[in-house]
Structures are given as structure tokens and as C-alpha cells.
Write a protein that binds this DNA or RNA. Structure first.
Length: 339
DNA sequence: AATGCCTCCAACCGCGTGCGA
DNA sequence: ATCGCACGCGGTTGGAGGCAT
């Protein structure tokens, strides 16, 4: 059964939006609010697909869109976030108030991507298109081999992403680290119950994850930790550290520039953590060495993580960092992420 | 001036996820 | 448990405009 199209495209306008269409859309949303995109065109009297209306609003007409060139600071932040998150444009955009995921994606593809990966004669648009068509065939074959989950860690430390949300992390830790977790050093006081739940969940989850479909050794399972991590929440929780907005190596307060950003997160419904007055930064580890330089980030991944399969070793590693720097420092060489 | 190539970015597309029925 | 809908996301495309020849 094929997928039902979002709308019958007959009789609908396509391509660039006219000023009149923009005005109709803005007027309608100002009156009725966002949402119900499928019905919106009919109700507003627009000959457009609902999806197109949503995109036009989110990427162009929204009043809080910031226009103009990307500043040097924004650019630096994009590069850092991309090295950490890969092509998760919406997450990156969430850290840049007024910027859209589409805008950041375009900016990366036209400017930063070339710089980071080294500009070459083969990077022209036409050649990119040609290679992308070839890549499409290749990736279709690769899909078969790609394990479930959103983020794939490759040996080089580069993070590649797929258009899906990854919420579950299977994090294998050495026994001593595991014991530390059990004694609240890793997971934190409030997570003892969660840890017990993790233990209960680990056997079926690990069974599901075994590539060869074989039985899972129960002892091995209990030396592992299954964490439910929402990457959005994780990113929000890192706001406690302010490290994403800090200059490399700096850990101090970056002022009120984050307030709007936190608001944006909360508007989106994620569980933003806003520390109260006087809260201390829990982890001096991340700001000091994760963002010392791009090379340092990659070296960190090579050193800390030895990815075998997919899953978000990134999220688990960051979570471990957040909860216990000391434990992480002592054990990171032994930590591996497995599928 | 005409032509072709390149860049940029708005818009489109297909798929994954969450949620309610 | 299953299905369908609505929405969000990332990859890709199309075309306008700039630039070089």
C-alpha cells in the first residue's frame, strides 16, 4: 500500500510564494494560530499544499525569524554543534535563536561544509547533484546494513545521522563503572530507581539488539546500562553548563543571551532545565576539553568511544559526563558503546 | 550582448515518529 | 495491538541571479 499523498496536488500553486499569498497566510495564522496545516489552505483560501504553508511560515514568515547574514559567532557555534550532533539541523537551529533549520542546513552546505571538508573542484552544485544521485543508489543498499537508531558513530568519530529520532541508548560499561553507577556515582541520586528499571529492561532490550539473534548472557546484561535519552532533553540539560555558547575553554556564565533560547526550547515542549540562582556548573569537564578544538573533539571520541554498532554513544557519553566527571575521567578509556 | 557555468536558498519530497481513535 | 492522521525532520531539487568568457 502506497503512502497517501499529503494533498492532491491538482490545481495547487507551486514554486515561489507571491506577496499576496504570504499576506493571506500571515493573516490567517495571526487570527487562528498555527497547526491544522492540512486544513489551513482550504480555510484560508490558499491554493497551496498544507505542507507548503507550514514550511513557508516556519522558514520565512514567522515574526521571530532573524534575517541577515550569519555572524561569526553563530558560524562558530554551528561548526561546534555540527561536530557534536552531525546533520541534526533542527537541534542546531534550536541553539540559534531566530535561525531556521533550513537556513542552517543551506548555510552549511554552501559555506561551512566546503570549508570543513575542504573545498574541491568536485564540490560544485552540478557535480554535487550528480554525486548525490549516485549516492542515493548506494545509500539504498546501505540501509539494509544500517542498524536501527538515529545516530551512527563511525570509527573516525564522525557522526552521521538519519532522519529519525533516537531515544534509546544501550551503553555498555565495565563492571567497576557499573558498580559506580549502582552506588549513585554515575547516575546521580535521583536516578537510583531508574537504574533499577534499567536493569529490568536490559535483558529483553539487549536480546532485541543482538545482531545474530542469539541468546544474551544475563551477567553481561547486568554489566550494561540501558538509558532512555531524549536527545532534545539532553541538549536542554546541557544548558546548565552553558558550554555550547561559551568560547572554547571557558566555563563562566555567558550572560542572558541564553534566556530566549531556553524559551524556544520550552515552546517546543522539550524538558528544558533552567537552573536556579546560584546553581553551580555540574561538569567542568565538557567545556574544558570537548570544545578545546575540533581536533580535540575527534580525539576525544577516538579515546573515549570505540563504536561497534550504531546507537548514541554520544548521548550516553555526554550523560555520563554530566553526572560524574571524576568517574568519567577515570573510566573513559574502558568505556565502549555497542549495539 | 549573448551564452554558459556556478552559487545560493526557497521549496519540495519522502520517511519517521507521536498520538488518538 | 493496530491503524491512520498530523507533524517534524533531513535530503534533494529547481530556478533566479551573479559572474566569467
Amino acid at each position: 500500500m502506497g503512502r497517501r499523498p499529503c494533498c492532491s496536488k491538482e490545481g495547487l500553486n507551486r514554486g515561489a510564494w507571491s506577496a499576496r499569498e504570504d499576506q493571506i497566510l500571515v493573516d490567517y495564522i495571526n487570527t487562528h494560530g498555527e497547526g491544522k496545516w492540512r486544513d489551513l489552505p482550504r480555510r484560508a483560501g490558499l491554493k497551496r499544499c498544507g505542507k507548503s504553508c507550514r514550511l513557508r511560515w516556519l522558514n520565512y514568515l514567522r515574526p521571530d525569524i532573524k534575517r541577515g547574514n550569519i555572524s561569526g559567532e553563530e558560524e562558530e557555534l554551528i561548526v561546534r554543534l555540527h561536530s557534536l550532533l552531525g546533520n541534526r539541523w533542527s537541534l542546531i537551529a534550536g541553539r540559534l535563536p531566530g535561525r531556521t533549520d533550513n537556513e542552517i542546513k543551506n548555510y552549511w552546505n554552501t559555506n561551512l561544509g566546503k570549508r570543513v571538508h575542504g573545498g574541491s573542484p568536485g564540490s560544485s552544485a552540478a557535480q554535487r547533484r550528480h554525486s548525490s544521485k549516485q549516492k542515493k543508489k548506494k545509500t539504498a543498499a546501505e540501509v539494509e546494513q544500517q542498524p536501527a537508531g538515529g545516530i551512527v558513530l563511525h570509527g573516525s568519530g564522525v557522526i552521521r545521522t538519519k532522519a529519525s529520532r533516537c531515544t534509546r541508548v544501550f551503553f555498555t560499561a565495565p563492571a567497576d563503572l557499573h558498580e559506580a553507577a549502582g552506588s549513585n556515582l554515575l547516575l546521580g541520586d535521583q536516578d537510583q530507581d531508574d537504574f533499577t528499571t534499567c536493569q529490568k529492561n536490559i535483558v529483553p532490550s539487549a536480546s532485541a539488539l543482538r545482531e545474530d539473534g542469539g541468546d544474551v548472557d544475563v551477567d553481561d546484561c547486568f554489566n550494561s546500562i540501558l538509558l532512555d535519552i531524549n536527545i532534545d532533553e539532553l541538549m536542554s540539560s546541557t544548558e546548565e553548563l552553558d558550554f555550547l555558547n561559551s568560547t572554547p575553554g571557558a566555563t563562566g556564565d555567558q550572560g542572558g543571551s541564553n534566556d530566549k533560547n531556553r524559551g524556544d526550547h520550552q515552546e517546543k515542549g522539550s524538558a528544558a532545565v533552567v537552573p536556579g540562582d546560584g546553581d553551580e556548573c555540574m561538569s567542568p569537564l565538557l567545556p574544558d576539553h570537548l570544545f578545546a578544538s575540533d581536533e580535540a573533539i575527534l580525539e576525544e571520541w577516538r579515546e573515549c568511544l570505540h563504536p561497534v554498532g550504531s546507537v548514541t554513544g554520544l548521548a550516553a557519553a555526554m550523560d555520563a559526563c554530566l553526572h560524574s566527571d571524576q568517574e568519567w575521567v577515570e573510566n573513559r578509556g574502558n568505556v565502549s558503546c555497542e549495539l
